[in-house]
Design a protein around this nucleic acid. Structure first.
Length: 711
DNA sequence: GTGCCGACTTAGCATGACGAGC
DNA sequence: GCTCGTCATGCTAAGTCGGCAC
C-alpha cells in the first residue's frame, strides 16, 4: 500500500515523495501486488465525513476551538442587529490581533483523500526533469483500472402504446428509459429534422430489443410520458434532499473515485482524466448526424484493454464475475485503457488528466512548434503567395488553401463518411459554401464546421488583403467555375498533400499549427503591452478578455446564448442606469447640505411579500441616508457609488460582448499560456482573474515564465 | 496512391458547485 | 440561511494527422 492513513499529518509534498520512494522500492523488490492505491485498510473507502471526523479527533483541541469560535460568531451575528457599532469594534479588535498558527489551523478546510493526492501530485515538476528517449512515453505505469456504471435497476413504470400500458422486460424498459431521458425541447428532439432522424434510429434499435411479434409496431403510438414524469420526479427528489445528505453522498462517491483517480507514471503520481466507462444511452451526435438516437451499448469489462507496466500488478476487475479483456504493456502510448464503441466503430480511451505530465509535455511541444512557425512564416507566405499564380491547377489550389488556413484560420477539413454529420473545413469546402461578389472582391463563406457550428463570414479581400486578396478572389472564381454546387472547390487537393507540402517547408508543420500560431500571435498583439498600474483590475481583465475575444472570433469559437441571458443583461443595464441616477441625486444632496438645507431621507419600505418587488424598492432608495448626513458622508457614498457603477458597467459590457463567443476554448487549446502569464506579471493582474484553477493546473510549466516573455 | 486505423487534440453543452446579495 | 445567477468541471462527440497495409 503506497498511500495509507498514516500519511494524514504529513505535508503533501512529503506524501508525494514518500509515495514515490515506496513505489520505486515496491517495483524493485516485489513487483506484483494488488493495487497501488490500496483501499483495503486505508481511509480511501471510508466516507469522507468519517475521515474528516477521524482527522478532527486527532486535532481535537483545535477542533474544539473551531466549534467555540463558530458559536461565538453566531452569537455575534444575533447581537449585530442590536448594536452594529459594538460588533464592528469587536471585529476590528479580532482582525488586529496577531493570530498564532494553532489558532488559524482549524479554519483550514479539511481535505479529503482526493484533494490530498491532487496536492501531492502538484509537487511533480516534470519540466525540470530529463526527458525520456524519443518514442518512449513511460518506463513504469501503475493504475487501478476504471469504474463501471451501476447495473440498470428497473422502475416498473409502464410505457403506453396506443394509450394502453405495455409490459417490458428490464432490457426493453432500460432502452425506453434512455429515450424518456432525452429532453423534448433539447438539441435532438427540439428540432423537426433532427427529431425525425433521432426517432427513426431509436425505434429501429428499440424494435431489436422488443423482438419479432411484439405488440409495439409504430413509434408514433408510443407514449413515454409516464417514464418521463418518473424521471422528473427522481430529479426533483434528488434536488430536495438535505445539504448533509448531499454532502454525504458526494463524499461517498469521492471516496470510491479516489482509487481510480490517480496513476503512478515512472513513480510520479498523476491524475486520471476519465475514471468511468461511458454509460449506455442514446447516441447524441451533434448537428444533423445520421446515427443520432441509436443505442449506445453498455460496455463490459471483457471489452476493455488495459495498458499497464510489465511489473505492475493487474488491478482486480470491479465487476463481480467478470474480467478485463486484455492486458498490454505499450510504452509508446499514453492511454491507460480503451474499448470499442458500437456507434461509429471507434475507440474510447482512458487518458491522464489535462494537468498530467503527458498532456503538459505535449502542450508545451505544441506551443513550441507554433513559436517555431513564427520564424518560418515569412518564407511560407512568400511560397504560397508566389504559387497563387501557378500554372498547375494543383499547385494553385494548394497555395490558395494555404492562404485560407493561414489568414482565415480554417481547419484542414478531412473527408467525411456518409454516416457522419455533413461538416467541412478548408480542403472539403464545396462550391455551395462560397459566394463571390465582384465589387470590392468579397468572399462569403457559409458552411457548417466542427460540431456543426456555422461559419458565416464575408471577407473584403481587396480591402483587407490588397493584391494578394484579389488573387485569392480570382482563384476561388476559377476553382468554382462550371462546377455543380456539391462539387469540391479544391478538387485537386487532399489534406495529406497539403500537410506533406507543409512538412517540406518546416519540419513537423501541419495545418493545425497555423491556428495555434495565429491564436497566440493575435493574443500577444491585441494585449496592451504595459498598462497603467493604477488601472483597476476589472479594466485589466476587460482588456484581456477583449484580446481573448478577438482570438475566439478568429477561430470561430461559439456558444449558444442561454434562455434567460437577455433578461439578465437588461436587468443589469437597468441597475447601471439606476446607480447613475442615484449619483446625480447624491450630487444635488451635497449641494443642498453645503447650503445648510435638509435632504430627503431613506423612507421605510413596507414589505409586500413579493421578494423581487421588495428588493427593487429597497434598491431604489439604497443611496439615501437614515439620518441627515454631513457633506463628508455624502462624498464618501458618492465615491462608493462611482466605483460600483464603473465595475457594473465594465461587467455589462463584458457580458454583452461575450454573449455568443466562447472564450474558454482558445484559452485551453490555442493561446500560448506563457503570453497570458507574462502579461499578468507585467501588469500586476492577479493570474486567477484570467486563468481559473483548472488552467493554472493545466499549465504549471508556464507559470514561472519571466515577465518579458514574447511568443 | 489510397484508405483505414489508431492515438491524440479540440469542442460545446449539461450539470453541479459556489458565491454574491439580501 | 436562502435564492439566484455565474462559473468551473465533467462528459463525450468530433476533429486532426501519422503510419501502415494493400
Amino acid at each position: 500500500m503506497i498511500i495509507d492513513s498514516s500519511d494524514d499529518d504529513m505535508p503533501l509534498v512529503a506524501v508525494a515523495s514518500k509515495a514515490k520512494a515506496k513505489a520505486k522500492k515496491k517495483v524493485k523488490k516485489k513487483p506484483k501486488r494488488e493495487s497501488f492505491i490500496d483501499d483495503s485498510d486505508s481511509d480511501d473507502d471510508m466516507p469522507l465525513a468519517r475521515l474528516a471526523s477521524k482527522k478532527k479527533s486527532k486535532k481535537s483541541a483545535s477542533s474544539g476551538k473551531k466549534v467555540a469560535k463558530k458559536k461565538k460568531k453566531v452569537s455575534a451575528g444575533s447581537k449585530r442587529k442590536r448594536s452594529s457599532a459594538t460588533t464592528k469594534k469587536k471585529k476590528t479588535k479580532t482582525a488586529g490581533k496577531k493570530r498564532t498558527k494553532k489558532e488559524t489551523a482549524p479554519t483550514v478546510k479539511i481535505q479529503g483523500p482526493l484533494k490530498q493526492l491532487e496536492g501531492a501530485m502538484k509537487a511533480n515538476k516534470w519540466w525540470e526533469k530529463e526527458e525520456l528517449p524519443s518514442g518512449l512515453k513511460w518506463r513504469t505505469l501503475e493504475h487501478n483500472g476504471l469504474m463501471f456504471p451501476e447495473p440498470y435497476v428497473p422502475h416498473g413504470i409502464k410505457l403506453l402504446y396506443d394509450g394502453k400500458p405495455v409490459d417490458l422486460n428490464p432490457e426493453q424498459e432500460e432502452v425506453a428509459t434512455f429515450y424518456a431521458s432525452v429532453a423534448p425541447d433539447g438539441p435532438q428532439l427540439g428540432n423537426k429534422t433532427t427529431a425525425n432522424i433521432f426517432n427513426k434510429n431509436f425505434f429501429a434499435d428499440f424494435k431489436k430489443y422488443l423482438g419479432k411479434g411484439h405488440v409495439i409496431k409504430s413509434f408514433n403510438k408510443c407514449d413515454f410520458s409516464r417514464i418521463r414524469a418518473h424521471l422528473a420526479g427522481e430529479r426533483e427528489a434528488k434536488k430536495s434532499i438535505s445539504k448533509e445528505e448531499k454532502a454525504a453522498k458526494k463524499a461517498e462517491a469521492d471516496a470510491l473515485k479516489v482509487k481510480y483517480s490517480f496513476a503512478l507514471v515512472d513513480g510520479e503520481l498523476q491524475k486520471v482524466g476519465n475514471t468511468m466507462v461511458e454509460p449506455p444511452g442514446l447516441f447524441r451526435g451533434r448537428g444533423i448526424h445520421p446515427k443520432m438516437g441509436k443505442v449506445k451499448l453498455r460496455v463490459m469489462p471483457e471489452q476493455i484493454t488495459l495498458n499497464i507496466g510489465k511489473d505492475a500488478a493487474v488491478p482486480p476487475c470491479p465487476v463481480p464475475g467478470h474480467n478485463w479483456g486484455e492486458i498490454v504493456h505499450k510504452q509508446d502510448v499514453t492511454w491507460l485503457a480503451y474499448w470499442n464503441e458500437n456507434i461509429m466503430g471507434g475507440f474510447k480511451y482512458v487518458w491522464l488528466a489535462a494537468s498530467s505530465g503527458f498532456k503538459g509535455k505535449s502542450d508545451r511541444d505544441k506551443y513550441e512548434k507554433a513559436r517555431k512557425l513564427k520564424k518560418y512564416i515569412s518564407k511560407i507566405r512568400k511560397d504560397y503567395e508566389k504559387r497563387l499564380k501557378a500554372r498547375a491547377g494543383a499547385d494553385r489550389q494548394r497555395a490558395t488553401a494555404m492562404w485560407v488556413i493561414d489568414r482565415l484560420a480554417l481547419r484542414a477539413g478531412n473527408e467525411k463518411d456518409d454516416d457522419e454529420a455533413d461538416t467541412v473545413g478548408c480542403c472539403s469546402l464545396r462550391v455551395e459554401h462560397i459566394k463571390l461578389q465582384e465589387e470590392g472582391h468579397l468572399l462569403t463563406m457559409d458552411f457548417l464546421g466542427k460540431d456543426s457550428m456555422r461559419h458565416f463570414q464575408t471577407y473584403k479581400l481587396e480591402e483587407q488583403y490588397g493584391e494578394i486578396g484579389i488573387k485569392v478572389y480570382e482563384n476561388f472564381k476559377k476553382f468554382c467555375h462550371g462546377k455543380k454546387p456539391d462539387a469540391e472547390v479544391f478538387d485537386q487537393l487532399t489534406v495529406s498533400d497539403l500537410n506533406d507540402h507543409l512538412k517540406s517547408l518546416m519540419p513537423g508543420l501541419s495545418a493545425k499549427v497555423f491556428r495555434t500560431y495565429n491564436a497566440s500571435i493575435t493574443l500577444e498583439q491585441q494585449l496592451p503591452l504595459e498598462m497603467d498600474h493604477a488601472t483597476p483590475v476589472a479594466d485589466k481583465v476587460l482588456a484581456y478578455n477583449s484580446a481573448n475575444r478577438k482570438v475566439a472570433i478568429l477561430c470561430n469559437h461559439q456558444r449558444t446564448v442561454g434562455k434567460g441571458f437577455q433578461d439578465n443583461l437588461d436587468k443589469l443595464k437597468a441597475d447601471v442606469r439606476r446607480m447613475k441616477k442615484q449619483m446625480k441625486e447624491l450630487r444635488a444632496m451635497l449641494k443642498d447640505v453645503k447650503a445648510g438645507k435638509n435632504v430627503r431621507l431613506k423612507p421605510e419600505i413596507k414589505e409586500t411579500g413579493d421578494k423581487a418587488k421588495d428588493r427593487a424598492a429597497k434598491k431604489k432608495v439604497s443611496h439615501l441616508f437614515a439620518r441627515q448626513p454631513g457633506a463628508e458622508a455624502i462624498k464618501k457614498r458618492l465615491a462608493t457609488w462611482k466605483t460600483r457603477t464603473h465595475v457594473m458597467e465594465v461587467n455589462v459590457q463584458n457580458k454583452d460582448d461575450n454573449k455568443t463567443v466562447a472564450l474558454g476554448t482558445s484559452k485551453i487549446n490555442y493561446m500560448d499560456p506563457r503570453i497570458t502569464v507574462a502579461w499578468a506579471k507585467r501588469n500586476e493582474c492577479p493570474i486567477e482573474k484570467v486563468f481559473p484553477s483548472a488552467l493554472r493546473d493545466k499549465f504549471p510549466w508556464a507559470m514561472s515564465v519571466p515577465d518579458e516573455y514574447r511568443f
